[in-house]
Design a protein around this nucleic acid. Sequence first.
RNA 1: GGGCGGUUAGCUCAGCUGGUUAGAGCGCCUGCCUUACAAGCAGGAGGUCGCAGGUUCGAGUCCUGCACUGCCCACCA
Length: 933
Amino acid sequence: MPHELSKSYEPGAIETRWADYWIKEKLFSVPTPSEGRADDARPVFTLLLPPPNVTGRLHMGHMFGQTQMDIIVRWHRMRGFTTLWLPGTDHAGIATQMMVERDLAKEGKKRRDLGREKFIERVWEWKKLYGGAILDQMKRLGASVDWDREYFTMDENLSRAVREVFVRLYEEGLIYRGKYIVNWCPRCETAISDLEVKHEEVAGKLWEIRYPVVGSSEFITVATTRPETMLGDTAVAVNEKDERYRHLQGKKVLLPLMGREIPIILDEIAQPEFGTGAVKITPAHDPNDFEAGKRHNLPQIDVMDEHAHMNQNAGRFKGLDRYEARKRVLEDLHEQGFLVGEKEYTLALGKCDRCGTVIEPRLSEQWFLKIQPLADRAIEAVESGEITIVPDNYRQIYLNWMNNIHDWCVSRQLWWGHRIPAWTCINDACNEVIVAREAPARCTKCGGARLEQVPDVLDTWFSSGLLPFTTLGWPKKTRDQAVFYPTTLLITAYEILFFWVARMIMFGCHFMQGHEQDAAIKTASGWGERKNDSVPFRQVYIHALVRDAERQKMSKVKGNVINPLDVIERFGTDATRFTLAAMAAPGTDIAFNESRTEGYRAFANKIWNAARFMFMNVDRIEPGLRPDGGNIRAGTGESPAQLGIRGFQPSTLEDRWILSRFNRVAADVNDALQTYRFHEAANRIYDFFWGEFCDWYLELIKPRLYFEEGADKSSARIACTNLVNLFDGSLRLLHPIMPFISEEIWHAMYGGAPQLRSIALAPYPEFTESQVDIAAEMEMAILQDLIVSIRNLRSELKVDTKVKVPIELFVHEPKIRRMIEQNSSSVGRLANVERITFAEGALANRSAVRSTSRFDVHVVYERKIDVAAECEHLKKELEKIEKEFANNQRQLGNEQFRAKAPAKVVEGLRTRAEELTMLRDKTKRKLEEIGCP
RNA sequence: GGGCGGUUAGCUCAGCUGGUUAGAGCGCCUGCCUUACAAGCAGGAGGUCGCAGGUUCGAGUCCUGCACUGCCCACCA
């Protein structure tokens, strides 16, 4: 049966077909390995997908991350690991709630119009409607996740685990409830954590207001960037050391506009060098003032409501929005002569990460996680190397953050999320708060039956921080945990290092303390020591960010978001993945550039056509021929030597050469992937496949394939076998980066071998030393040099493409001359040469000659060369040689260099010196010969 | 206010632990529809590696300073 590949490469159809096939065949599903099963002998590789927001849409950042994950995952699977990539989605509290609220707004409704229950129902509907989108998109990317284990952070079992964690932490005294200043978003109407506040430098003002000192004609001047908060002032602080205010100790000031007498206190919050040295204290509206207020027992006067509108405590300003109030306060202060200064001032304004609204520090009752004990262990885990962070510089960033961590406000005044498992007794004035796994029937204090669950939900990151173990069945002790925990690796973007990675480490170390991975499980090598199995993962790889072609960070607001599906639509998933891989040098952000993708689509097309070429010949010469590589299975104890190219019978120079080159590439690619140098892996494969396999090898074997009618087919058969096996190996090498085209061609090659389900399960090529042939590589390099030299001369002499020219060749070494003689038909074919005449002496003093240290080659062609152009060329050439030679001699003449540089380098320079001398002399003679001035 | 990264060909980027002649893709120029591929083939032009010092036998690579640029972190009014 002839192999079928359509004439042109159309990625769309191929890619969707294989994506469906992989899922239908459950190719990437990993059943729980049972104890003592043979498979347990295989090492385990586990990767948790950073869960995208359930209602999210795929953007280039996702695709970038997932491409890298998929490459690593497929690579491990092919290398014989039991490979689990665990997918899921996050309920994304604020983000999702906002979307649904926006949707409601179209109907002119607010969430309170519906009420909590109805609203949540609506979110679930929304989730059902849009929730699968991102997963469908992932399928299009070819992400080889285990779809059978897909989770959602609000699944019942995960929710139960969240409650369990909360209750345990509460019982351990690590979760507490209290009234503190938190970051409040007036638009989202909820508290948010420090991490969710983004600071932005803006030009603002610093106003100076004077407060009259009671019982004196003096004033004390304070400075503020938020004058409206003065309505809630309960003191003015000055520094003890500040002589200017020493005499005011114990006195009071009359708060303007409010007519309230407030004390002057001594506190180091006031720094003499800053502003006037006196500072207003508003304990209900500023975290520093809050602390100062506690130190001095000051009342807390909250002058705003949850919308940041002024409340009854703001007197006549009640009802005004905070900025309107600011304006009016300033006007009034000015009128009454209290406003004495206004300066330009740059301030770092905190904004809500989600909606951009300016944050209001607000006094409110919240739940906090006492972080220090957790952080201590999380620091230890990284410092001790139980978790390694790559690239290394993120390690310090992580440690800095962890060392300066504050308690985490985990409660949110939202409706969508895990509701805090706490109940308030509303029986009379009891107010007892009960934290429990399930709703209690009676109050534990007063015995009353009227209990109400706390309305708050938990920060989204609270539940996602638990995923490494909750997705494996925690709190139950499961076989999955014994096998897959700790996960091997985490690949993620820097953005969520603190939000997510840090929390997972804290929670993992805490809740999995004492956990031990089944001793029979071999973990992947290269991921640090197995000292402590409570960590959620052994290594974290932080990848860079994708920017647009102008290096701008992509954001919906800017409208510069590149939709990967558009790119995929035009160039194919494989080409898009290859682009991302080829640009993914660790550490640096990438500017997504479509012209690259276009180039890699051309690469896919090149592979496609090479495959068509192969099939054309196989069908003609040896129909039914299949490669051998797929018949060996990964992880079955085959020695590495057997994982190279199988069934390859090197019978010619080009055979020996390509086999050797292939093994070098395999070595480099494995090496590159081990250290996340995706770009290097991609480039190596690209250069090999196009630059060596297609440009040289395929061209060189054509004479063997195009045998004469009735001639012996045996060398054609060998050529075919080699071709097929090499192609098979190359596809396997390529597969992690370009899974679709490799699968398509691979199946065509193995057509009718049903036991081979997918190239994704075939072994990954490894370096096989016995297949390296240094002599072949050297000889081939000379041959390539010769062919290129002839092509150069032809081009300079403007020889018509179709004309075959005779050449004269002088080779110093007999061995090399013999080698060229043996391969003269290759030279003839690839350089369009009619016949080769070997000269017995050097050919340097002739025009139309190219020289290297190994040979002189002369193209015999009657057309007169362009003397002027040739002169210019030769002069330039000579100049270059002289320059290098001078440099070369300078170094060799240096005694220090000869003494200190490695012998290899010195020797290299000496050899080069000889070459250069020879080339210089030849070039000079040529110049004379032609008669250049 | 701290910390981190970038600056290499017209454009987008490689260049790992310092070592002989700094690479690729795209674009550009020349010639080819050569029976796998014009999404191709062959050849070519194009770079004082941001600036100034330093270390070294030797610096795109290490150190210092500067300039420009981007990012992150930060409860000083």
